[in-house]
């Protein structure tokens, strides 16, 4: 199996590029803690609405400009509804679904995570810029999927 000189060179260059991509991704993920949301914790979907974790629905201040919120993603709404935080706040979202699979996306941020029934999803973001961000479900969840949205206002 003879490989042409230029092809060898190309495959080495191409592979190097891919390895560089992977290295950048690895440094971000494992050193800078910028990896994708990967929380592993289960919850019975049929008990989400009654569970203690999701009983206290509202933003909880846990530190200086740091908030936690437990949200239920259900057909076809996120509960609680619209949110408001001061500029510079870090918000830790905890999500679960009592019914089907949903997606949790906030526009203009990297917040994007699947909410699969049976599992608790967690994702955090620091809102440095003021504005009204759109929160929407980006996984088809039934015939009212396009109505599943609310907002988070940063001011």
């Amino acid at each position: 199996m003879r490989i042409h000189h230029y092809e060898k060179l190309w495959l080495i260059i191409g592979s190097l590029i891919l390895i560089i991509f992977l290295s950048i991704l690895a440094v971000q993920t494992f050193v800078l803690d910028m990896g994708p949301p990967s929380h592993a914790e289960t919850i019975d979907p049929q008990s989400v609405r009654e569970s203690e974790l999701f009983a206290n629905t509202g933003l909880q201040e846990v530190g200086d400009k740091e908030y936690e919120i437990a949200m239920i993603a259900e057909m076809f709404a996120f509960r609680p509804g619209d949110l408001e935080v001061p500029v510079g706040s870090t918000v830790h979202f905890t999500l679960a679904s009592p019914d089907v699979t949903h997606g949790f996306k906030i526009t203009d941020t990297n917040i994007n995570v699947m909410v699969v029934p049976g599992h608790i999803s967690k994702i955090s973001h620091t809102f440095d810029e003021s504005g009204e961000y759109l929160i929407l479900c980006n996984e088809y969840c039934g015939l009212g999927h396009e109505y599943m949205a609310n907002t988070i206002t940063v001011k």
């Binding site: 000189h5 060179l9 950048i24």
Partner: peptide, 28 residues
Amino acid sequence: AEESSLKGTFVSVLILAAIMVASWAAIM
């Protein structure tokens, strides 16, 4: 002779590599 005859291919794939890096970097 054969290797010189694939210079065009090599140049073309290098352009491809440049586009690959640029598009990935943009989304990053």
